[in-house]
Structures are given as structure tokens and as C-alpha cells.
Design a protein around this nucleic acid. Structure first.
Lengths: 341, 341
DNA sequence: GTACGGAGGGAGAGCGCTCTCCAATCCCGA
DNA sequence: TCGGGATTGGAGAGCGCTCTCCCTCCGTAC
């Protein structure tokens, strides 16, 4: 009993206990080729009896596979605050592991905020610790995607990369989402609508902004004032101050994400505006901020879980066939109507 | 070049390129024993030339070490909401990886919410994928700590386990923190103080409650009304409704964590109470909720980063010496004074 | 009775690495 | 000049597993 702890049993031990060869035990465990059902049973009992657990290192040494994939969350600056504040990541993890767990594939979460962490992640991936990686990058200039494409296992991206890259990715139709927001504000009767965009070097921000402008133009609104934020609540507050100063009469607002919407909402209220009565606010993402707001935010929601599951599907396909051509899958967002608009 | 991708170079290749033996290359890479500096240089150049990356599987097969440890976040129910909403986990990760990175040890994050996920985590740990684990459990009845102690690699816990267990852990002096809160409320001149506690099957909640009561008793307050919550904002709201109904005149509140404090604060405000003028509120944890509140929360802050670093230190010591006796390290909390009290 | 085929099991060669021996070399003092 | 210790490099045995051969055995057809 005491020795079981120190030296865990090997295939050899199981084989001896079952009175068969190592190869047969291996076959039973991996379910390959025909093995007499009776012997299978004997082996299984022996496995249980000696408390055998396959040694992953030995296995992957010969197979070249590890049976686990990494979820790499990369970004700069306000990184931890982002990951651990934004339930978006929770939905990503949930979607991925929901798809992976039944397949017996392990998910390893890696965080790469600073440059040295990034180097470590690359090391980790190159050393063959995982068979592939799903990369969620929160920053436009993040060099990680490019570095990974160059050397390393198969990678799938969340969201279209800022620079064109030979890499599969999954994204949402941002402009369609923005259009939902625009149509809703118009339907509510808003006349003077403004927008707070995300950083314009991020493709998603750009698409949301241009999609919103386009949809508004279709409704006859040629000019939509906009201020650029950086996806934080604080930047939303500052942007709203600017908007209220420059365009005092606005009665509708579309923010590039919920956090900025929340900031804007707080500022609007501190200026005595009632939401949604005086100002209708629509966010994007359906993050926890949307629910934390008073009133709760009307917002555009991506099917993050579905998107994440699709990412794992794509990644597994790439692992299976390294020469598979890269693809992109785009999902349609929904509008979640709450009280802010 | 093309083949480098498919079959990555091995030690043998480096050895051939450098004109030395495999053993020598290994020695250079691992920095063991004396190797002629000139040869070292030659080997290093060969490594760079062929683009060699050590195969971790092969290495850990022989060494029995993997060079990575797991951070297992376990809990039931509102799990994802917790991890990805509570910046507390961000601070934990930050503290751990800050300590581990310079040592070249990889951190693998694992989430174990449901029972099947838990089984998978145990598998993962037993298969020797990591050398040890740091376990953060958010639930009192979580069976994972006990299961891991029984079979698996060294484990260190965040917070004292609900059931006594032969396992090292790191915790904060909860009662001392509660006392800081009590003293502060008294110093502000509060006369009728109440508290909202966390679930009482969690040791931390219990200690905070009894510590608070004890400190208040020391100030002559024999009776402190309290309502039990479950650490969620919603439970804080419900608890506050109860408190206001049963004890209309309270002017000071200590909540078992910030989320409940936030809920309580919102309810108090909706009842027309001004914070801190009519009601002073003190939270616990210094989570993001503390800052998101209006007014921002005065709260008790643990040195989470230091605690996390200490956990990694303990874990590495246990890995180094499996027979090391278990220890607990208790940290002192601070009071962060903001506007709510 | 012989030939043949398929199913079931074993033997053994590695996967890429570390690490223990052991051999070669060198420097020193006697 | 030679012996002995220190230093440095190489040979080779595994770590635990998978997987390709190959052998045996049995049933079937001729």
C-alpha cells in the first residue's frame, strides 16, 4: 500500500497480475483490435486491483499526442482585470470544455499578459505539452497569433486577427449586431443618436462602428457623432462627458461594449438624464456589466458558447489533419432587450 | 526547413551537428556538471541552428517531473460566474505566476465545477501531468480536497478546509479582519450595528462572524443581529431587506464579503438610506464589487498575492520533499477605507 | 488429410530523454 | 618518469508506453 504511492504501477504490473502480456493490456485499455471478452474482463479487474493509471508522458512520447489543448488568453495591460471581471471568458471556457469533455480531451488554461509570459507560453506549446491551442487575444497589436502560426501546434483564433494571418478563426457578424442596435433605437423613436466606439485598431470595433453608421444612414441619419473609447468603463465615462458637452440633445446611444455603456449610463444619470426615458442606451456583448447596470442594459449578445464549441471543433480538425485549409466561421448575434432601451 | 516542421529535431540531431555525444548536449542544456566552455558554445550554436526544443514528454518520462503545476479552481453551482466575475481569482493567478515564472515552472489552470469535471481533474493529476496542485475551493462540501489528498500529487489549499485534512494551506486571519471592521464602525460612531454573514458551513464565514461579534462585544455591544447569506449579491439584497424589516434603526453594517455588501448597499439606498451618512457599510475581500459600488466600499483586504506566492512556495517544497510535514501560514488582513464607511 | 485464412495473443523495437557508470585526458607532485 | 586524483566526454541502460511484426490456434474448404 505504502509503495503504491511512491512508484505507481505500470502496464507491466497489470500484465503480470492478469497473466497476459503488456501488449494485451494496452489493447484492452485503448480498445484496439479484438481481445477475447473474457480476457478483457480479467485485465480490467487487474487494472482496478493494482490501481493502474496510464502514464501520460510515456504514452505521448510514443504517440506524439498529448490529449490536451490549451486555451491561451493573451492581451496587454488591464489583462487580469479583463479576464477575471468579464464573464465573457467564463462563457468561452464553458463552451469549449462542454465540447471537449465528452471527448476526453483536457483543457489547459494559459494566461499570457506580459512579454515574458508570452515567451513561456510559446515554449510550452512548442515543447509539445498540448496538441493545439485556442487563442483569445484582447489586443490588436498582440504578436502572439503571428508567433504561433509560425512555429507551434495548430491554433484557432477567437475573432478575426488584426493582421491577415493563415489561421482559422471564429467570429461574430459585428456589423449585423450594430445594425440590430440601430434598428432598435430607431424603432424606439430616437432622433439624435450617438455612439461610443472601441479602439479603432481592433477590427471588431471598426465593424461595429461602421455597421452602426451604415444602418443609421439607411434610416436617413447621415451624421452620427462618435467618440473612441478603449472598452473600459472609465473610457465610457469620459466619452460620455465629451458627447454630452458637444451634443447636448442626444437621446440614443450605442456603445461598443457593455462596460463603456455602463460608464456612459452612470455619467448620463449624474447629469440628470433618465434612462431610457431621456436617453436610450444599447451595449454590446451581454456581459455581467449589462445586468449590473441600473437599469439593466439592452445589448447585443454573441452566441459565445456556440462559437467556442466551434473553435474546439475546428482545432480538433486541424490537429487531425495538419494540412487542412484554414477556415472562418461567422455567427449571427442577437439583441437582448432589457430596460435601458 | 519543411521537414523541421513535421519531425522536430532531437538531442541526437543537435549532438551530430555539434560533433559531440547526446549526453554532452543534455548536460549543456540542463547546466549540469562541468562542460568545457568552448564546447558549451558549440552546442548552443547547434541548438539554435537546428531549432531544437526539448521534448517534455521524453524528459518527464525519465525524470518523473513535469515542470508544471496546476491551479485547480473547484466549486459547485455558480461557478463560472464566480471565477470570471471575481477579480479575486485574478489576484491569485497573478500571485502564483509571479512566483513561478522566474523559476520556469508552468502554471496550468483547471476548472472543476461539475462532478465529471472533477473526475477529469483527478485523472489529470494522477496521470502525472503536473507535479502538484494548488487548490482553491469555493464550496464547503467540495470533496475534491479529500480526494486529492488520498491519491495524487502534493496539494496546497487556499483557506482552511472545512473538514480537517492532512494538507498544507494558506489562509487569512478572518477574525482579525472582522475586528478591523468592527473597530472602524465603532470609531465612526455607529450605535446599532448588524452583520450579514456568509454561509456558516464555511470556516471563513464563521470566523468572520464570530470575530466581528467578539470585537463588538469588547466595545460593549452584546447583541449583533445577523442574517446568513451565501456570498452572492442577491443574497445580500435579501438579507438587507430582512435586516431593515427586523431592525429598522441600524446605522452600521458589516458584510461577509463585498458582493453581499454591494447588494445590501443597493437595497439600503432604495429604502432611502444615505451611505455612509445614515448607514455605514464595510465589506470583505476588496473585490471589484468594492470599487464598482457607489459609494465605493470600505472593505477588508487580504494580501492575496502574497498568500498565493506563499502557496506556490509551500507546494514546491512539498514536491521537493514529499515527506515534508504539512503546515499552515496565516496572513494578516488590512482595512481599506473608502467612502462607504 | 492438407491448405488456407482469420482471429487472438506475445515478443520486442523503439519514442527522446536523463543519468549512471566508465574511459580518456590532463595536471600535479614525488 | 610515473602514479594518482580531478576533470571532462561517451556509451548505454532504461523510463512506460504503443504498435508492428509474427506466431499459434482453430475453423473451414478442398
Amino acid at each position: 500500500m505504502r509503495e503504491d504511492r511512491l512508484v505507481s504501477p505500470t502496464l507491466e504490473d497489470v500484465a503480470r497480475a492478469a497473466g497476459v502480456s503488456r501488449a494485451t493490456v494496452s489493447r484492452v485499455i485503448n480498445g484496439i483490435r479484438n481481445v477475447d471478452p473474457e480476457i478483457q474482463e480479467t485485465v480490467r479487474q487487474a487494472v482496478a486491483a493494482v490501481g493502474y493509471v496510464p502514464n501520460r508522458a510515456a504514452r505521448s512520447l510514443v504517440t506524439g499526442k498529448t490529449g490536451s489543448i490549451a486555451l491561451v488568453v493573451s492581451g496587454a495591460g488591464h489583462f487580469f482585470a479583463r479576464v477575471f471581471t468579464d464573464p465573457f471568458f467564463g462563457r468561452v471556457v464553458s463552451g469549449i470544455s462542454g465540447h471537449l469533455r465528452p471527448l476526453g480531451v483536457h483543457l489547459v488554461l494559459m494566461l499570457a499578459e506580459a512579454a515574458d509570459a508570452r515567451a513561456q507560453v510559446i515554449d510550452y506549446l512548442r515543447q509539445g505539452h498540448v496538441d493545439g491551442a485556442i487563442l483569445v487575444s484582447t489586443h490588436a497589436e498582440d504578436p502572439l497569433p503571428a508567433q504561433l502560426v509560425e512555429s507551434g501546434p495548430p491554433v484557432v483564433l477567437f475573432a478575426r486577427p488584426a493582421q491577415p494571418l493563415r489561421i482559422s478563426y471564429v467570429d461574430v457578424a459585428h456589423s449585423a449586431g450594430a445594425r440590430l442596435a440601430a434598428d432598435h433605437l430607431i424603432a424606439r423613436g430616437c432622433e439624435r443618436v450617438a455612439t461610443i466606439s472601441g479602439p479603432l485598431d481592433v477590427p471588431a470595433s471598426l465593424e461595429r462602428l461602421s455597421g452602426f453608421r451604415e444602418a443609421m444612414a439607411r434610416h436617413g441619419h447621415a451624421y452620427i457623432p462618435s467618440v473612441e473609447g478603449n472598452f473600459t468603463q472609465e473610457s465610457g465615462e469620459q466619452a460620455m462627458e465629451r458627447l454630452l458637452a458637444d451634443h447636448p440633445g442626444i437621446d440614443g446611444l450605442f456603445a461598443g461594449n457593455d462596460l463603456m455603456a455602463q460608464g456612459a449610463l452612470l455619467v448620463a444619470q449624474s447629469h440628470g438624464l433618465r434612462v431610457p426615458h431621456d436617453l436610450a442606451v444599447v451595449g454590446f456583448d451581454d456581459s455581467s456589466a449589462a445586468l449590473a447596470c441600473r437599469p439593466p442594459l439592452t445589448t447585443v449578445r454573441h452566441p459565445v458558447e456556440d462559437m467556442s464549441a466551434e473553435m474546439s471543433r475546428l482545432l480538433l480538425a486541424h490537429i487531425e489533419d495538419p494540412d487542412r485549409r484554414v477556415t472562418s466561421v461567422i455567427f449571427e448575434p442577437d439583441l437582448v432587450i432589457r430596460q435601458s432601451a
